[in-house]
Design a protein around this nucleic acid. Structure first.
Length: 805
RNA sequence: GCCGUGGUGGCGGAACUGGUAUACGCGCACGACUCAAAAUCGUGUUCUCGCAAGAGAGUGUGGGUUCGAUUCCCACCCACGGCACCA
């Protein structure tokens, strides 16, 4: 008899063997049936891996093992998204160079990942902060520049006058700097953008061809926000200017009573600058100054409390000759549509709130479906829904859709407007005024014109002679080394770009670089890229639904157009794991609710800990951390060990055969859908069955194979004890026989008037007639049907009989 | 504010395509083993009433469709994720 189950001993033993025999290294050229399973790579923080990391990485590892056993050549890589804010902040507070702290953190993380027992191919690991990697981030920038997809223009940044530094949105708390609590202001700065908007339609269309969760597709569609509408040109009384408003609801235009401009709007600027005379100049100027200091989110968050300032000017509604006052308000965003909206308070909630605040006229132009055509005086009456036109001249009587088309034709014909398609998606701002990122490979000639750094100078190294403490400019602007380097290569008076790139750029193409085996000659070898892309399964959090996942799709499409890759879509199948929270909140150092898995792994082992996390619920749901249930999987692992490594096997009973085939079916289906919780419960049920039915050698072998993706070390140990050859992870996944999963009898439930009154046993092939007559014989059922007329008899095959009396 | 997701026993959760709600596990109670404890094994465990047989209620709240609703429809409440410089 073998010794007791000792997880720390067997886990170390198998991790060593896997590494020695290179079980998990993928040879891209030799493989025949590729399966690329990618998990979003982590940021290497200084803290140890927490429970959330274990959840996010060990579960996809079980999925990869499952695919490997199903006969796929699985490539399951790991890397580090190493540029970013925390390392830079750490440098500011301690003086440790980010390169040094990052390298240390990565080293510690790799050791921890190895204890998890994941099948990562470490020979192909990536680190985005190493010159070997960021050379390609910069190469991508050069390609974007070369193809006219990169351009420079002014954009707003959060600026802290106290720290003299640009802040991330995350660092702004309630309009104040998180460090020094100064009031944060918005400051315009010349920055680089990538033209993702050129790809708006392709990004939309591509969604139809990928297997992603519907909710994610929906979020991306809304993020891109394609809308058909019309730009209406309004003349202004007493000046030559006109104002153009974008609207998707021109049908309601007879109900327009005012115009609202974004604070950034040209017309408003002209009033402040005095180019246009106005008695309200001071109010407008004060209002705009105040709102420009708010972030976009703040502007929209304030919700129902609408604020604004009247400009003193009126626009003319061509449809009915009405004079509409022109206001400025910060609920209108400059970046969407034309930065000016026409206010129809009867049929738009935000317009109504504004009209209500400033006592502007409200006109009903759509009759509600219940016939209500009373004047609109309350917010609840505002009708955005469908209906019939009223008070709208030639549109009266039409439904809103016909009216929309009719009025657009009319306006276009009269020259008052132009049909347009508008998108919510904006170009991607890639510049960051930070040190720890990929330096933008651009230099400026003495006239200030931008030139690309020729490819032969890549990687365009980040200088090290910089001051991390903020000084009002990008930290890299202070580097003498970079200045010297630029003058040496390009000539006197040339200067470097000192901004770095958004870390989302680094993570927009890593799926290709994993296949390049760190080649410095080419971005990715063509034959290998063709064979392995797209990624078969991409796993990561739903918080990336819009940003990272749109950027990666855009970059892939661009690279395809440039001729470097063969696919339009990088990720064929996508899965979002749920979030592990603690005390109801996302785990984070600042909240102090981070749970370390170390003591559990120490006590129960990696396998049991992994089982427990999978058993907590569906992978898509995540959950609130709580350790009370870990005893269950621990008992299960011990029991499995006892049953298989320490007992004798006998004959296989009929019941055990049925149970085994059902277990194979259930495990296969559930693992394919990443519902490991129910796969584990199926294995528990089978183990409970062996309590009654005993175990055979064959059923033990099958059980161990089914267990292998979930508890990899334990399964190897048990496989060895059963005398199995090779590694269990290299065995073929068990198949079930559909004939053997059915039992001979079924239990049929009987309902009377929809209430369960009893049940009976019948042969599985029982006829409808027999089932109904048998149902009438059930004691308790008799009591409820006796003396009543049966109006209806319903039979659901093999399941239920229902009487209506 | 806008976009998206979710709400089932004391707890984590299960339930195919509208067909026996609560599988599996934790916890708890009782019992066996033990000098005792732990571990292990067995029995029970949605709530209320009942010795029991059984009855009634029950999947966030209110309503609807249906012989039958956790599942479909409408309204509402609550919690969570994202909102373009956290990654």
């Amino acid at each position: 008899m073998k010794a007791e189950f000792n997880p720390s001993e067997i886990e170390a033993k198998w991790q060593k063997k896997w590494e020695e025999e290179k079980v998990y290294e993928t040879d891209f050229k030799k493989t025949k049936d590729p399966y690329y399973c990618l998990t979003m790579f982590p940021y290497p923080s200084g803290a140890r891996l927490h429970v959330g990391h274990w959840y996010m990485y060990s579960v996809p590892d079980s999925f990869s093992r499952f695919q490997k056993m199903r006969g796929k050549d699985v490539f399951h890589p790991m890397g580090f998204d190493a540029f970013g804010l925390p390392a830079e902040n750490f440098a500011i507070s301690t003086g440790t160079p980010p390169a040094k702290s990052t390298e240390e953190n990565v080293g510690v993380m790799i050791e921890q990942f190895k204890r998890m027992g994941c099948m990562y191919d470490w020979s192909k690991a990536l680190n985005t902060s190493e010159p070997d990697y960021y050379r390609w981030t910069q190469w991508l920038f050069l390609k974007m520049f070369e193809k006219n997809l990169a351009y420079k223009k002014d954009g707003n940044v959060n600026f802290c006058p106290g720290c003299q530094t640009v802040l991330a949105n995350e660092q702004v708390w309630d309009g104040k700097c998180e460090r020094c609590e100064s009031e944060v202001t918005q400051k315009p700065l010349a920055q680089w953008y990538w033209k993702i908007t050129d790809y708006s339609d392709r990004l939309l269309e591509g969604l139809d061809n990928i297997e992603w969760p519907e909710k994610t597709k929906m979020m991306q569609k809304n993020w891109i926000g394609k809308k058909q509408g019309i730009d209406i040109h309004y003349e202004i009384e007493g000046c030559e200017d006109e104002i153009v408003c974008f609207t998707t609801r021109p049908d309601t235009n007879f109900g327009a009573t005012f115009i609202v401009l974004a604070p950034e709007h040209e017309f408003a600027k002209k009033i402040i600058d005095g180019d246009l005379k106005s008695d309200h100049k001071k109010e407008v100027a004060d209002y705009i100054k105040k709102s420009l200091n708010k972030t976009e989110l703040e502007r929209q968050e304030e919700g129902k409390k609408k604020t604004g300032a009247f400009t003193g000017y009126y626009a003319l509604n061509n449809l009915n000759g009405k004079k509409m006052p022109i206001w400025v308000s910060d609920f209108v965003l400059a970046g969407f549509g034309t930065g000016a909206v026409v206010g129809v308070p009867g049929h738009d909630v935000r317009d109504f709130e504004f009209a209500d605040t400033y006592d502007l006229e409200v006109i009903r132009v759509v009759v509600a479906s219940d016939g209500d055509d009373s004047p609109i005086t309350k917010l609840e009456q505002v009708q955005e829904a469908e209906g019939t036109m009223i008070n709208s001249g030639f549109l009266d009587g039409m439904n809103i859709h016909d009216a929309t088309q009719k009025v657009m034709d009319h306006m276009v014909e009269k020259g008052w407007g132009k049909r347009v398609t508008s998108y919510r998606l904006r170009d991607w701002l890639v510049s960051r005024q930070r040190y720890w990122g990929s330096l933008i490979p651009i230099v400026y000639d003495p006239d200030g014109k931008a030139h690309p750094v020729p490819e032969e100078h890549l990687p365009w190294k980040i200088p090290t002679d910089v001051e991390f403490k903020p000084t009002g400019t990008s930290p890299i602007a202070k580097s003498k080394e970079l200045k010297k380097r630029v003058e040496k290569i390009f000539g006197k008076g040339w200067t470097p770009e000192v901004d770095t790139m958004d870390t989302f750029v680094c993570s927009s193409f890593y799926q290709f670089r994993f296949l390049a085996e760190n080649s410095q000659k080419e971005f990715v070898p063509k034959t290998i890229e063709k064979k392995w892309m797209p990624v078969d399964m991409y796993i990561g959090g739903p918080e990336h639904a819009c940003m990272h996942l749109i950027y990666a799709r855009f970059v892939t499409m661009a690279l395809k157009d440039f001729g470097y890759v063969s696919v339009d879509e990088p990720f064929q199948r996508l899965f979002h794991q749920g979030l592990i929270t603690h005390k109801g909140a996302k785990m984070s150092k600042s909240k102090g609710n981070v749970v370390s898995p170390d003591e559990f792994v120490e006590k129960y082992g990696s396998d049991v800990f992994r089982l427990y996390m999978m058993f907590m619920g569906p992978f898509a749901d995540g959950g609130d951390w709580n350790d009370t249930g870990i005893k269950g999987p621990d008992r299960f692992a011990k029991k499995a060990y006892k049953k298989i490594a320490q007992s004798k096997f006998g004959e296989q009973s009929k019941a055990l055969t049925v149970g085994l085939n059902r277990t194979i079916k259930k495990c296969t289906e559930e693992m394919e859908a990443l519902r490991f919780n129910t796969a584990i419960s199926a294995l528990m049920e089978f183990l409970n069955l062996t309590e009654k039915e005993g175990t055979s050698q064959e059923s033990a072998e099958t059980f161990v194979k089914l267990l292998a993706p979930l508890a990899p070390h334990l399964a190897e140990e048990l496989w060895e004890s059963l005398g199995g050859k090779g590694f269990v992870v290299e065995q073929e996944w068990p198949k079930f026989d559909p004939k053997l999963i059915q039992s001979d009898t079924v239990t049929i439930a009987v309902q009377v008037n929809g209430k369960l009154r009893g049940d009976f046993e019948a042969d599985s092939g029982v006829s409808e007639k027999d089932a109904i007559s048998k149902a009438k014989e059930v004691e308790n059922v008799k009591r409820f049907i006796e003396g009543n007329k049966i109006n209806k008899e319903i039979y659901v095959e093999g399941k239920l009989v229902s009487f209506v009396v």
